[in-house]
Simulated assay, not measured.
Amino acid sequence: MTTTTTIYVVEDDTLYREQIIHYIEHYHSNTFRYKLSPLDNHLLFMEEIPTLNISDNDIFFLDIDLKTRYSGIDLASQIRQINSKCNIIFMTSFEDKAVSIINSGIFPLGYLVKNPIDATEPKATIETVLMKVESLTKSAWRSDLDIITFVNGYESIYVNCKEVLYIESLKRLKNRVLIKTLTEESVIEGKIGKIKKTLEQPYLFLSLQSYIINLENITTINRKNGTITFTDDQDLFVGTRIIDKVKKGLQDYQYA
Protein backbone atom coordinates (compact mmCIF):
# COMPACT_ATOMS: atom_id res chain seq x y z
CA MET A 1 0.00 0.00 0.00
CA THR A 2 1.50 3.28 -1.11
CA THR A 3 0.24 6.36 0.68
CA THR A 4 0.21 9.72 -1.10
CA THR A 5 1.04 12.55 1.27
CA THR A 6 0.74 16.20 0.33
CA ILE A 7 3.40 18.51 1.74
CA TYR A 8 2.85 22.26 2.09
CA VAL A 9 5.81 24.59 2.57
CA VAL A 10 4.74 28.09 3.68
CA GLU A 11 7.82 30.28 3.96
CA ASP A 12 8.38 33.95 3.07
CA ASP A 13 12.10 33.44 2.34
CA THR A 14 12.15 32.10 -1.24
CA LEU A 15 15.67 30.70 -1.06
CA TYR A 16 15.02 28.90 2.22
CA ARG A 17 11.77 27.49 0.83
CA GLU A 18 13.59 26.17 -2.23
CA GLN A 19 16.16 24.54 0.04
CA ILE A 20 13.43 22.78 2.04
CA ILE A 21 11.73 21.60 -1.16
CA HIS A 22 15.05 20.30 -2.50
CA TYR A 23 15.57 18.12 0.59
CA ILE A 24 11.99 16.81 0.41
CA GLU A 25 12.29 15.94 -3.29
CA HIS A 26 15.46 13.96 -2.63
CA TYR A 27 13.98 11.94 0.23
CA HIS A 28 13.14 8.35 -0.78
CA SER A 29 10.42 6.17 0.71
CA ASN A 30 9.20 2.72 -0.34
CA THR A 31 5.79 3.19 1.27
CA PHE A 32 4.96 6.86 0.90
CA ARG A 33 4.64 9.01 -2.19
CA TYR A 34 5.23 12.67 -1.35
CA LYS A 35 3.52 15.35 -3.42
CA LEU A 36 4.44 18.99 -2.98
CA SER A 37 1.54 21.43 -3.03
CA PRO A 38 1.74 24.09 -5.76
CA LEU A 39 0.46 26.69 -3.28
CA ASP A 40 3.54 28.83 -2.68
CA ASN A 41 2.26 32.32 -1.92
CA HIS A 42 2.45 32.82 1.84
CA LEU A 43 0.48 36.08 1.52
CA LEU A 44 -2.59 34.22 0.24
CA PHE A 45 -2.31 30.93 2.12
CA MET A 46 -4.78 31.86 4.87
CA GLU A 47 -7.49 32.33 2.22
CA GLU A 48 -6.60 28.98 0.62
CA ILE A 49 -6.95 26.89 3.80
CA PRO A 50 -10.79 26.51 3.71
CA THR A 51 -10.51 25.05 0.19
CA LEU A 52 -7.99 22.36 1.13
CA ASN A 53 -8.86 18.67 1.43
CA ILE A 54 -6.48 17.83 4.29
CA SER A 55 -5.78 14.17 5.14
CA ASP A 56 -4.34 12.88 8.41
CA ASN A 57 -1.02 12.13 6.71
CA ASP A 58 -0.53 15.57 5.13
CA ILE A 59 2.41 17.66 6.31
CA PHE A 60 2.63 21.42 6.76
CA PHE A 61 5.98 23.20 7.13
CA LEU A 62 4.95 26.63 8.45
CA ASP A 63 7.25 29.57 9.06
CA ILE A 64 6.18 31.22 12.31
CA ASP A 65 7.21 34.74 11.31
CA LEU A 66 5.76 35.33 7.84
CA LYS A 67 6.14 39.11 8.04
CA THR A 68 2.50 39.57 7.14
CA ARG A 69 -0.75 40.28 8.99
CA TYR A 70 -0.89 36.68 10.25
CA SER A 71 1.74 34.26 11.55
CA GLY A 72 2.41 30.58 10.99
CA ILE A 73 0.68 29.98 14.33
CA ASP A 74 -2.48 31.62 12.96
CA LEU A 75 -2.29 29.36 9.90
CA ALA A 76 -1.87 26.29 12.09
CA SER A 77 -4.93 27.21 14.16
CA GLN A 78 -7.02 27.39 10.99
CA ILE A 79 -5.59 24.09 9.72
CA ARG A 80 -6.41 22.40 13.04
CA GLN A 81 -10.07 23.44 12.64
CA ILE A 82 -10.19 21.34 9.47
CA ASN A 83 -7.99 18.43 10.56
CA SER A 84 -6.82 17.74 14.11
CA LYS A 85 -4.42 14.93 13.15
CA CYS A 86 -2.36 16.25 10.23
CA ASN A 87 1.33 16.92 10.77
CA ILE A 88 2.50 20.48 11.46
CA ILE A 89 6.17 21.45 11.64
CA PHE A 90 7.05 24.99 12.57
CA MET A 91 10.05 26.74 11.08
CA THR A 92 11.48 29.41 13.36
CA SER A 93 14.60 31.34 14.23
CA PHE A 94 13.64 31.30 17.90
CA GLU A 95 13.64 28.09 19.93
CA ASP A 96 11.65 29.65 22.78
CA LYS A 97 8.42 29.69 20.71
CA ALA A 98 7.71 26.03 21.50
CA VAL A 99 5.91 26.36 24.84
CA SER A 100 3.43 29.00 23.65
CA ILE A 101 2.60 26.96 20.56
CA ILE A 102 1.95 23.78 22.54
CA ASN A 103 -0.17 25.72 25.02
CA SER A 104 -2.26 27.11 22.17
CA GLY A 105 -3.47 23.58 21.39
CA ILE A 106 -1.74 23.15 18.04
CA PHE A 107 0.58 20.33 19.17
CA PRO A 108 3.05 20.36 16.27
CA LEU A 109 4.95 17.26 15.27
CA GLY A 110 8.25 19.15 15.48
CA TYR A 111 10.28 22.29 14.92
CA LEU A 112 12.81 23.23 12.32
CA VAL A 113 15.08 25.87 13.86
CA LYS A 114 16.69 27.92 11.13
CA ASN A 115 20.45 27.74 11.44
CA PRO A 116 22.37 29.99 9.02
CA ILE A 117 25.67 28.40 10.12
CA ASP A 118 24.90 24.70 9.63
CA ALA A 119 23.26 24.19 6.22
CA THR A 120 22.88 20.41 6.79
CA GLU A 121 20.61 20.82 9.83
CA PRO A 122 17.38 21.37 7.81
CA LYS A 123 18.08 18.21 5.80
CA ALA A 124 18.51 16.10 8.94
CA THR A 125 15.40 17.58 10.55
CA ILE A 126 13.25 17.00 7.45
CA GLU A 127 14.39 13.37 7.17
CA THR A 128 13.61 12.84 10.86
CA VAL A 129 10.15 14.40 10.46
CA LEU A 130 9.26 12.30 7.40
CA MET A 131 10.44 9.09 9.08
CA LYS A 132 8.37 9.98 12.15
CA VAL A 133 5.26 10.56 10.02
CA GLU A 134 5.76 7.18 8.36
CA SER A 135 6.30 5.45 11.70
CA LEU A 136 3.14 6.94 13.22
CA THR A 137 1.10 6.03 10.14
CA LYS A 138 2.36 2.44 10.13
CA SER A 139 1.48 2.12 13.82
CA ALA A 140 -2.07 3.18 12.94
CA TRP A 141 -2.12 0.65 10.11
CA ARG A 142 -1.11 -2.16 12.46
CA SER A 143 -4.14 -1.46 14.67
CA ASP A 144 -6.55 -1.31 11.71
CA LEU A 145 -8.26 -4.69 11.23
CA ASP A 146 -8.69 -4.06 7.49
CA ILE A 147 -4.94 -3.57 6.94
CA ILE A 148 -2.69 -6.61 6.79
CA THR A 149 1.08 -6.84 6.62
CA PHE A 150 2.94 -9.05 4.16
CA VAL A 151 6.63 -9.74 4.64
CA ASN A 152 8.29 -9.82 1.22
CA GLY A 153 11.96 -10.62 1.73
CA TYR A 154 13.26 -7.86 4.00
CA GLU A 155 10.37 -5.52 3.21
CA SER A 156 7.01 -5.15 4.96
CA ILE A 157 4.11 -4.42 2.64
CA TYR A 158 0.87 -3.00 4.03
CA VAL A 159 -2.34 -3.77 2.16
CA ASN A 160 -5.80 -2.39 2.87
CA CYS A 161 -8.11 -5.36 2.31
CA LYS A 162 -10.97 -3.04 1.36
CA GLU A 163 -8.93 -1.97 -1.67
CA VAL A 164 -8.08 -5.54 -2.73
CA LEU A 165 -9.81 -6.86 -5.84
CA TYR A 166 -8.29 -10.33 -5.71
CA ILE A 167 -5.23 -12.28 -4.63
CA GLU A 168 -4.00 -15.00 -6.97
CA SER A 169 -1.50 -17.81 -6.66
CA LEU A 170 0.79 -17.62 -9.72
CA LYS A 171 1.02 -21.12 -11.16
CA ARG A 172 4.11 -20.52 -13.28
CA LEU A 173 6.04 -18.88 -10.45
CA LYS A 174 6.62 -21.09 -7.43
CA ASN A 175 5.68 -19.52 -4.09
CA ARG A 176 4.63 -16.26 -5.69
CA VAL A 177 1.34 -14.49 -5.12
CA LEU A 178 -0.21 -11.61 -7.07
CA ILE A 179 -2.06 -8.96 -5.06
CA LYS A 180 -4.33 -6.84 -7.23
CA THR A 181 -5.80 -3.71 -5.63
CA LEU A 182 -7.72 -0.71 -6.92
CA THR A 183 -4.48 1.16 -7.59
CA GLU A 184 -1.59 -1.31 -7.52
CA GLU A 185 -0.39 -4.73 -8.58
CA SER A 186 2.28 -6.47 -6.50
CA VAL A 187 3.94 -9.88 -6.68
CA ILE A 188 5.24 -11.16 -3.35
CA GLU A 189 6.82 -14.31 -1.96
CA GLY A 190 4.43 -16.63 -0.18
CA LYS A 191 1.73 -19.26 -0.42
CA ILE A 192 -1.92 -18.39 -0.75
CA GLY A 193 -2.88 -21.04 1.80
CA LYS A 194 -0.84 -19.33 4.52
CA ILE A 195 -2.26 -15.94 3.54
CA LYS A 196 -5.82 -17.24 3.97
CA LYS A 197 -5.06 -18.21 7.57
CA THR A 198 -4.25 -14.58 8.40
CA LEU A 199 -7.47 -13.13 6.93
CA GLU A 200 -10.65 -12.63 8.94
CA GLN A 201 -12.45 -10.04 6.82
CA PRO A 202 -15.97 -11.39 6.03
CA TYR A 203 -15.98 -9.77 2.58
CA LEU A 204 -12.98 -11.82 1.44
CA PHE A 205 -14.00 -15.13 -0.18
CA LEU A 206 -11.46 -17.77 0.87
CA SER A 207 -13.03 -21.00 -0.44
CA LEU A 208 -11.08 -21.14 -3.72
CA GLN A 209 -7.80 -22.98 -4.05
CA SER A 210 -5.88 -20.39 -6.07
CA TYR A 211 -7.78 -17.16 -5.45
CA ILE A 212 -8.99 -14.84 -2.73
CA ILE A 213 -11.84 -12.67 -4.00
CA ASN A 214 -13.11 -9.42 -2.49
CA LEU A 215 -16.87 -9.81 -2.74
CA GLU A 216 -17.46 -6.14 -1.96
CA ASN A 217 -15.57 -5.02 -5.06
CA ILE A 218 -17.38 -7.22 -7.57
CA THR A 219 -19.56 -5.28 -10.01
CA THR A 220 -20.64 -8.05 -12.43
CA ILE A 221 -20.22 -11.79 -12.94
CA ASN A 222 -20.39 -13.22 -16.45
CA ARG A 223 -20.86 -16.99 -16.25
CA LYS A 224 -20.84 -17.43 -20.02
CA ASN A 225 -17.40 -15.81 -20.37
CA GLY A 226 -16.14 -17.06 -17.04
CA THR A 227 -15.13 -13.58 -15.93
CA ILE A 228 -15.53 -11.47 -12.81
CA THR A 229 -15.56 -7.71 -13.28
CA PHE A 230 -14.43 -5.57 -10.38
CA THR A 231 -14.55 -1.89 -9.56
CA ASP A 232 -12.94 0.29 -12.26
CA ASP A 233 -13.88 -2.33 -14.91
CA GLN A 234 -10.99 -4.64 -14.09
CA ASP A 235 -11.63 -8.21 -15.24
CA LEU A 236 -10.46 -11.58 -13.94
CA PHE A 237 -10.97 -14.77 -15.99
CA VAL A 238 -11.55 -17.78 -13.72
CA GLY A 239 -13.77 -20.18 -15.67
CA THR A 240 -17.30 -21.42 -15.13
CA ARG A 241 -16.64 -23.79 -12.21
CA ILE A 242 -15.05 -21.07 -10.09
CA ILE A 243 -17.70 -18.58 -11.19
CA ASP A 244 -20.40 -20.80 -9.68
CA LYS A 245 -18.56 -20.97 -6.36
CA VAL A 246 -18.07 -17.20 -6.28
CA LYS A 247 -21.76 -16.58 -7.06
CA LYS A 248 -22.73 -18.89 -4.19
CA GLY A 249 -20.25 -17.17 -1.88
CA LEU A 250 -21.56 -13.74 -2.88
CA GLN A 251 -25.15 -14.80 -2.26
CA ASP A 252 -24.29 -16.21 1.20
CA TYR A 253 -22.40 -13.01 2.08
CA GLN A 254 -25.23 -10.71 0.99
CA TYR A 255 -27.79 -12.61 3.06
CA ALA A 256 -25.57 -13.23 6.10
Rank of each mutant, 00 (worst) to 15 (best):
S207L: 15
S207H: 14
L208G: 08
Q209E: 08
Q209H: 14
S210V: 07
Y211M: 06
Y211Q: 04
I212K: 07
I213V: 11
N214V: 03
L215A: 05
E216G: 14
N217W: 06
T219I: 12
T219R: 14
T220A: 00
I221L: 05
I221M: 13
N222E: 08
R223F: 14
R223N: 12
K224S: 08
N225G: 13
G226Q: 10
T227I: 13
I228C: 07
I228N: 02
T229H: 00
F230K: 01
F230S: 03
T231L: 15
T231P: 00
D232Y: 15
D232T: 10
D233I: 04
D233V: 01
D233Y: 09
Q234N: 10
D235R: 10
L236F: 05
T240Y: 08
T240W: 03
T240Q: 12
T240K: 14
R241P: 00
R241K: 13
R241I: 06
R241F: 04
I242F: 01
I242P: 06
I243A: 02
I243R: 01
D244G: 03
D244F: 09
K245M: 12
V246H: 07
K247A: 12
K248W: 07
G249R: 03
G249N: 06
L250R: 12
L250W: 10
Q251P: 01
Q251E: 15
Q251C: 09
D252N: 11
